[in-house]
Design a protein around this nucleic acid. Structure first.
Length: 490
DNA sequence: TGAAATGTTGGGGCG
DNA sequence: ACGCCCCAACATTTC
């Protein structure tokens, strides 16, 4: 009785519900399958960094499978064809996978289900990619939440209710060898797929993902979750978990991350530091809840990928100046905090979350460019690019979404820099040309008097661009544009 | 998970 | 001594 486990965004063996279920149903006769889908590889939003990370994760997965006597079967082609062929070759009784919540994946999975029904093959779909699913967290009237804070209260209470179940890790699958005759393809290098990656990306896979989680929840480490609440907004500090790419590809299950946090909560003693640690852990758990929140928004309101959640904002009169957009992308706006953040993105395929909010506010409210342009660029660049979280973050910043900040909440790039990069260490790391600029001017170098520019060797307009917009003017303009549509009756 | 504009208060300089 | 003005410093309101 062979079963196929179709890996998608769950590139791991540990705590994998569909994989373990397939193993249980087949007494270990599982074909672990990954499909390099032609369409996905070519899709404009599939960033090169993400593909490179994924290929590494596949290699790690294959190594783990081999150490258990199995192996990863990788095939390239159209998903439907690959599954039909493999089912027929193996005579599989069933196909298992973990649910994917994006509209594209939902359509694809329905087609696969229909195909398998025609072939009289069983399907098994498990919930895995989020901690609590779209139907678990509902208001008392049974409706989905569209505001985070009440969602969070309900979510946190449900986690407490289901604590025992959530703390219980799924049994590791017992796997038998994949028959020799099942052909597969070598896992290609990025170059073989015609992809070049210039960015420094973290190592892909379950092994480095578990190591990252373990380091983050180790209170003895220099940068651990203990300092999260106080340090997470400081751009120069490695105070965040940096788990996002691993969560994106399921190298670490969000449930596994939550479990580590809940166990740590239990172990925190009563010393003077306990309050800070508990606050930090709760804050971080809140970030896992944000992730679930945006998944359930995408599930219930899939139109957010194309339009504003709040329809009146589709009428916003964006300026959409391509030259300003290029300056933003390339990190040459003349605002150090913006430019440093964009260069971090371009160099590392990752950006600090505080920085994401700052550059998103700047793109939409200073440059008056449609948030979807920024969303698409982030998806192209980010190694952790995730449709639900990225879209939620952009709509939040643009003020067009669920639980959005009010439109008049406009970040000042200078004061945000002073607040979250007080010494300018972050700015100087990515803008070495500003190394010699004194601290008091580091976030607004254009305010340096001529003599000061000479002294530190940074002439504005020669060594570093003058600001491409006047923040105060653009702020006023943004307020007018937003007000024009926000007052429109629904 | 803002920032700017506006209002209020209170100390100190000064006639 | 007293009123007046200036202006931080802080609080509140507005976008």
């Amino acid at each position: 009785m062979t079963w196929i486990h179709w890996f998608r965004r769950d590139l791991r063996l540990r705590d994998n519900p569909a994989l373990s279920a397939a193993a249980a149903r087949s007494n270990g006769h599982v074909i672990p399958l990954f499909i390099l889908d032609d369409g996905i590889l070519r899709a404009p939003r599939t960033g090169a960094a993400r593909i490179a990370f994924m290929l590494e994760a596949l290699r790690d997965l294959d190594a783990s499978l081999r150490s258990r006597g199995s192996r990863l079967v990788v095939r390239q082609g159209r998903t439907l064809d690959v599954i039909r062929d493999l089912v027929q070759e193996t005579g599989a009784a069933g196909v298992a996978w973990n649910r994917d919540y994006t509209p594209f994946a939902r359509r694809r999975d329905m087609q696969i289900e229909a195909l398998l029904r025609d072939l009289s093959v069983e399907t098994l779909i498990a919930e895995d990619a989020i901690i609590l699913g779209p139907d678990d967290v509902r208001t008392s009237e049974g409706r989905p939440y569209t505001v985070y804070t009440p969602y969070w209260r309900r979510w946190r209470a449900l986690v407490e209710q289901r604590r025992t179940e959530l703390l219980n890790e799924i049994d590791q699958p017992r796997l038998r060898p994949v028959p020799e005759r099942i052909a597969d393809q070598r896992i290609p290098d990025a170059a073989e797929l015609g992809i070049t990656v210039s960015q420094r990306i973290p190592p892909g896979g379950e092994t480095p993902g578990n190591a990252r989680l373990a380091a983050f929840v180790d209170l003895a480490a220099e940068y651990s979750i203990a300092g999260y609440a106080d340090g997470r907004d400081l751009l120069a500090e490695p105070a965040t978990s940096r788990l996002s790419p691993y969560l994106r590809f399921g190298c670490v299950a969000p449930r596994t991350a939550l479990r580590a946090a809940l166990r740590l909560l239990d172990s925190v003693g009563d010393d003077q530091d306990a309050g800070r640690i508990v606050r930090s852990i709760e804050t971080w758990i809140g970030e896992l809840a944000w992730r679930d929140f945006y998944y359930q928004i995408l599930w219930h309101y899939p139109h957010v990928l194309r339009r504003s959640f709040k329809p009146q904002y589709d009428a916003l009169a964006w300026e959409n100046d391509p030259a300003l957009f290029d300056a933003w992308k390339e990190g040459r706006t003349g605002f150090p905090i913006i430019d440093a953040a964009m260069r971090q993105l371009n160099q590392e395929a990752w950006m600090h979350n505080r920085a994401r909010m700052i550059v998103a506010s700047f793109l939409t409210k200073d440059l008056l460019i449609d948030w979807r342009w920024g969303e698409r660029y982030f998806m192209q660049q980010l190694v952790d690019g995730d449709h639900a979280a990225n879209n939620g973050g952009w709509q939040w910043s643009a003020g067009t979404g669920t639980d959005a900040q009010p439109y008049f909440r406009i970040f000042n790039p200078v004061s945000q820099g002073q607040k979250f990069d007080p010494t300018g260490a972050f700015v100087r790391r990515y803008l070495p040309e500003l190394t010699q600029v004194p601290d008091r001017y580091i976030h607004a170098p254009w305010t340096m008097p001529q003599a000061e520019q000479q002294r530190c060797g940074v002439i504005i307009g020669r060594d570093y661009p003058a600001p491409i917009v006047d923040h105060a003017q653009r702020r006023t303009r943004a307020l007018a544009l937003y007000r024009a549509v926000s007052s429109v009756a629904l």
